[in-house]
Amino acid sequence: MLNFDEFPDTVYAIQHLAFEDLGAWEDVFYQLGLRVRYFEVGVDDLTKAYEHKGLTVILGGPIGVYETEDYPFLQQEIDLLKVRLEQNLPTLGICLGAQLIAHALGAKVYAGHVKEIGWSKLTLTQVKNNPLVVLENTEVLHWHGDTFDLPVQAELLASSALYPNQAFRVGENILALQFHPEVAADNLEKWLIGHTCELRKAGIDIPTLRADNQKFASVLESTSGQIVQQFINNIQSN
């Protein structure tokens, strides 16, 4: 159990899509003595979540960072996130969350050359105390069409065969992950249902993806929680 005398005991999770939640990581937070509170984008006022002094996790979703005209709440998110990052508050972004962090740090976010949907291994960058080392030789779930340039102040942590920028950090308090390490094995059928239009448009074979989910998700679930634990430990030691 961590010592939270000076660290808020609630994780705020910003949710862009109902079934893209903290997944297996929710139990990890509970085991560490942390509570979880969700904020629904487009419904809730996000100010409290982005001004939170403890850990805020920005989750994934199917919209693009640059679609602010169609989704005006994105601009509010970006503006609040810029202030949060300037204050170096503990922030973890997954998929769209990582893209939002990259954009808020001044990097370009744009449509990639191909949809990256499915399971594959990462190529980890040889940097000191890489928090993703537990995923070496582990298949992880990718589910994105957009990508981003590496922010100038960031340290690259991982790449994939299709995209060079899969994860980065800024210091010890800001971590951005393009892939999905948080997924729970028993929840992925919701993804196949909810993203059916995207899957069919991208020409993804759904039975094959389902079989890969069943093959790889439980392995990822059993190891990826260590990323959260190390991230929080590093925040605590700062």
Rank of each mutant, 00 (worst) to 15 (best):
L2V: 15
N3W: 01
F7W: 09
T10L: 12
Y12T: 00
Y12P: 01
A13V: 10
A13Y: 02
I14F: 04
I14N: 06
Q15L: 10
H16D: 06
H16T: 08
H16V: 04
A18Y: 06
F19D: 05
E20V: 11
L22K: 01
G23K: 02
W25H: 08
E26A: 12
E26M: 07
F29N: 01
L32E: 04
G33H: 07
L34Q: 07
V43W: 02
K48Q: 15
K48P: 00
A49Y: 06
G54N: 06
T56V: 13
G60V: 02
P62V: 11
P62M: 09
G64I: 09
E69W: 06
Y71D: 03
P72H: 11
L74W: 03
Q75V: 00
L80W: 10
E86A: 13
Q87E: 15
N88I: 01
N88R: 14
T91F: 01
G93C: 11
G93W: 03
I94G: 02
G97L: 10
A98D: 09
L100Y: 01
I101P: 03
L105M: 13
Y110I: 07
Y110W: 09
A111M: 10
G112Q: 09
H113Y: 06
H113I: 11
K115T: 00
E116Y: 06
G118D: 07
W119A: 13
S120V: 00
L124T: 10
L124W: 05
V127W: 03
V127K: 08
N130Q: 11
V133Y: 06
L135W: 10
E136V: 03
V140Q: 08
G145Q: 12
D146R: 05
D146L: 10
T147V: 14
F148K: 03
A154C: 09
L156T: 00
S159E: 09
Y163Q: 13
P164L: 07
P164T: 10
F168C: 11
R169K: 15
E172W: 01
N173S: 13
L177R: 06
L177P: 05
H180R: 09
E182D: 11
L188N: 05
L188M: 14
I193N: 09
I193K: 08
E198K: 02
R200Q: 15
K201I: 13
I204F: 06
I204G: 04
D205K: 08
L209T: 04
N213R: 02
Q214L: 15
V219A: 14
L220W: 01
E221Q: 15
S222K: 12
T223E: 13
I227K: 03
I227D: 07
Q229C: 10
I235Q: 09
S237N: 14
N238I: 11
N238P: 00
N238Y: 12
